[in-house]
Design a protein around this nucleic acid. Structure first.
Length: 506
RNA sequence: GCCCCCAUCGUCUAGUGGCCCAGGACAACACCCUUUCAAGGUGUAGAUCGCGGGUUCGAAUCCCGCUGGGGGUACCA
């Protein structure tokens, strides 16, 4: 059992380079869960030190995604907090990082490096040409005298600030998730990483660490791809004389085919794609919580509060999970089925509006009609976005191919197994006749009448009902027939049956 | 190449030395229910716990090696 001692302050610090994919949401979620379970604070910070990859609006988009799954923050760019600002470029503009850079430089823990990117590139190429396996840059400037540095600076040459990493010895750190032994690397494997670009902008390694320190972050839960750079961070904490936070590297979420981690380009995993398709936040929350964490050997469906109560870091496992959209979809279906009719109607309306099946906003009668239709499709929905397709025939005309309907269907679909066109036409004619005098037009009456008719015609119920289903919906797979007829109304039902009968009779 | 991390059914996982010839869920398949499709119910199949060595009376569980997968190796994060 891992003891977590308060205070607990964690953060999620995305880089605004595009949309947030579900892997990022999962990392954020574990941080949030950790903070909520152990009674700490969850901080959101924007790490936008990479000017080249910066995408305007991405930070806002990410915040929207986070809130959508139900992750809120105690301190952040939009709400502020005691250690703001929470955007790195703003902090840089305020000069927050400079004093720390000076401190590193004057204590000899870092040095100014005057090699250019081009020179570096050349050195790498040369090294590769000579068959050198790994190129680790440690500049000659690390041993320069103050005079040499001053001279280079006086000539106006741009420089970066690099960490002066030890040549010998080892650096190690422990990890809450990768328990057991510490992770240790030989310092000889390290290189003098760049801390500050020639533009004066600090890089992630430096900026995040200063921010974490100033923001009193106690536990760093981040994706496992950061494990290799953790030694640099340890060295930096040592250089500053600060106590490092506790680390916990959460497992990655791999692509569905297992070939590599999720990629924004290759995989359809942008968080917004999920609300666009009609996923419920609760389902996404529940699914993501189970990617790398579990409660026991059988509990899967859990509310937000239950997960918060049960989430402990020792049940987070170190091995990577694989993106499994089928499982998410199944869970989404479970959560949709838990919703009331009114709730489903409310959530489905925007999809129907977008498909121009109803107005935007819907009229009062449209709203009422949609609510009337929900029970027919409620348990058949796995994605709310499927609703327009499932309900389309209630809003558009349906007719056999060649007819006048907006939704046309193949005549052959009309003919049930072991029947022919003439027989089907006769059955539909009989159905039309008996239904045209039916009062009241209710589900119960419809069922009673049509069952009696099937018996009278010596047809199996499925044969008769199948033909009527296609006539009325234009498809073989549809909601239950009697409910459909009742919801569609007498006039429209009869007109469609007549059209089918006539088409088959020609 | 080098460094680091990881390793239980196709997938997500339970399992921390005997309760496991390995449990649950998704997916698959079959049957039941049934007017189609779902939902629901029942069941089947699917993992010699990656491989090989140890330690132990006893190992999926501990140790070592190998293999495989992933990640890192930027003036990206």
């Amino acid at each position: 059992m891992i003891e977590i001692t308060p205070p607990v302050r964690v953060r999620f610090a995305p880089s605004p380079t595009g949309f947030l994919h579900i892997g990022g949401v999962r990392t954020a979620l574990f941080n949030w869960l950790f903070a909520r379970h152990y009674g700490g604070q969850f901080i959101l910070r924007v790490e936008d030190t990479d000017e080249k990859r910066y995408v305007p609006g991405a930070a806002e988009d990410m915040m929207y995604s986070l809130r959508w799954v139900g992750i809120d923050w105690d301190e952040g760019p939009d709400i502020g907090g005691p250690y703001g600002p929470y955007v790195q470029t703003e902090r840089h503009a305020l000069g927050i990082y400079q004093q720390y850079i000076d401190q590193l430089l004057s204590s000899g823990k870092a040095y100014k490096s005057f090699v250019t990117e081009q020179e570096l590139e050349q050195m790498r190429a040369d090294a590769a040409a000579r068959g050198i396996k790994s190129f680790r840059y440690r500049g000659a400037e690390r041993d320069w005298t103050p005079e040499q540095v001053a001279a280079a600076e006086a000539s106006g040459r741009p420089y970066t600030v690099r960490l002066k990493t030890p040549l010998e010895g080892t650096t190690s750190f422990s990890d809450l998730i990768r328990g057991g032994d510490k992770i240790t690397v030989n310092n000889s494997e390290l290189q003098d990483i760049v801390l500050v670009k020639s533009s004066g902008m600090p890089l992630y390694h430096l900026a995040h660490l200063i921010d974490d320190h100033e923001m009193r972050v106690t536990h760093v839960l981040r994706a496992e791809e950061w494990v290799p750079s953790a030694p640099y961070h340890l060295l930096l904490y040592q250089a500053f004389g600060w106590t490092p936070p506790v680390f916990a590297h959460v497992p990655a979420i791999l692509r569905q085919d297992g070939k590599g981690k999720l990629s924004k380009r290759k995989d359809d995993v942008a968080t917004n794609r999920f609300w666009e398709r009609g996923y419920l936040p609760a389902a996404m929350f529940n699914y993501l919580a189970l990617q790398g964490w579990s409660y026991d050997d059988h509990t899967e469906i859990m509310s937000r509060d239950e997960v918060v109560e049960r989430f402990t870091i020792d049940r987070v496992q170190p091995s990577p999970a694989r993106w499994n959209p089928d499982k998410l979809k199944d869970m989404n279906g479970i959560y949709i089925r838990k919703l009331s009719t009114a709730e489903v109607a409310e959530r489905i309306m925007p999809f129907l509006s977008r498909a121009t099946l109803i107005g935007d906003p819907p009229s009062g009668s449209e709203r009422a009609y949609v609510e009337r239709l929900i029970p027919l499709v409620h348990e058949r929905l796995e994605e709310l976005g499927d609703a327009p397709e499932l309900l389309e025939f209630f809003f558009r005309d349906v007719a056999p191919a060649g007819g006048a309907g907006a939704l046309e269907y193949d005549l052959a679909l009309l003919i049930p197994k072991k029947m022919d066109a003439a027989g089907t036409a006769a059955a539909l004619a009989a159905a039309h006749a008996v239904l045209s005098t039916l009062e009241p037009w209710t589900e119960g009456q419809l069922e009673e009448t049509l069952r009696a008719l099937a018996e009278e015609l010596e047809l199996k119920p499925g044969q008769l009902f199948g033909a009527i289903r296609v006539a009325v919906t234009g498809r073989t797979i549809a909601p239950p027939l009697f409910e459909t007829l009742a919801a569609l109304g007498k006039d429209r039902s009869l007109a469609r049956i007549a059209a089918a009968r006539d088409a088959l009779s020609v």
